[in-house]
């Protein structure tokens, strides 16, 4: 579904990604793990078009993502839940979700998608008129994921969904990710919470200093010595 080939990317003169190759197949859940500053967020941003690669190709179902204007990438079926959620704090939950369905292709199914999201997150329905910025961290994460789902995506990019949340809530978030998978969506998830994420995904990539160090199935990764030592604290 999604393929990255020899992607370099960065900010100005600072290069954050080096020769990244990555594949996500339809129906899969793929994790990207690695330490802070390894380039995980950059990877997400380069896929959704917030920054452009300096080299390499990105294809979504065969369509050249690099050649697509940033605001059209969401129409290719890629929805990005950014790091720190990035809700519109002064807009109501309803309006935030509405923004998720902004693109023309999604407007027609707006009511249907809204029902779907409210079914997934009944909590959001209760809070629909509340300002997004006044909600708890967990609720905000729901809203951010809900907003991304409003565009009826094929591929969901989740950037650190558990960051800054209380342990109980982190648990809930990963439950959510499972449910989203079950609904047939393909998921690419970036996490520092390695233990948790490896129990949710099928495959994972380990990224360090902007380079893919290793990859494998979740089980392989859990068993791998490098992962164990560096990230699982075993």
């Amino acid at each position: 579904m999604l393929e990255l080939r020899s992607v370099d990317a960065g900010y100005g003169s600072f290069q954050a990604l080096f020769d990244v190759n990555l594949d996500v197949k339809a129906g899969e859940a793929v994790g990207v793990i690695g330490p802070n500053g390894a380039g995980k967020t950059t990877l997400m941003r380069v896929i959704s078009g917030l920054i452009r690669p300096s080299r390499g190709s990105i294809r979504m179902e065969g369509v050249d993502v690099v050649a697509t204007p940033a605001h059209r990438i969401v129409s290719l079926g890629i929805a990005h839940v950014p790091e720190n959620r990035r809700l519109f704090p002064q807009l109501s939950v309803d309006d935030n979700l509405k923004m998720g369905a902004f693109m023309k292709e999604a407007r027609g199914t707006y009511a249907k998608r809204l029902d779907f999201v409210f079914e997934l997150f009944p909590r959001l329905k209760e809070r629909r008129h509340q300002m997004a910025g006044t909600m708890s961290g967990g609720e905000q994460q729901m809203c951010a994921i809900g907003r991304a789902l409003m565009s009826n995506p094929k591929l969901l990019l989740l950037d650190e969904p558990s960051a800054g949340l209380a342990p109980v809530v982190v648990q809930q978030v990963f439950e959510l990710v499972k449910r989203i998978r079950a609904s047939g969506l393909t998921v690419l998830i970036v996490e520092q919470n390695v233990q948790q994420v490896l129990h949710v995904v099928d495959r994972a990539y380990l990224i360090e200093a902007g380079t893919i160090r290793s990859s494998g199935t979740a089980a392989e990764m859990l068993a791998s010595d490098t992962v164990k030592e560096a990230y699982l604290g075993v």
Partner: peptide, 13 residues
């Protein structure tokens, strides 16, 4: 409220 992520919403700023 957030200029940078408008593209993620499919909005052409």
């Amino acid at each position: 409220q957030d200029r940078q992520i408008m593209a993620l919403m499919g909005v052409d700023t």
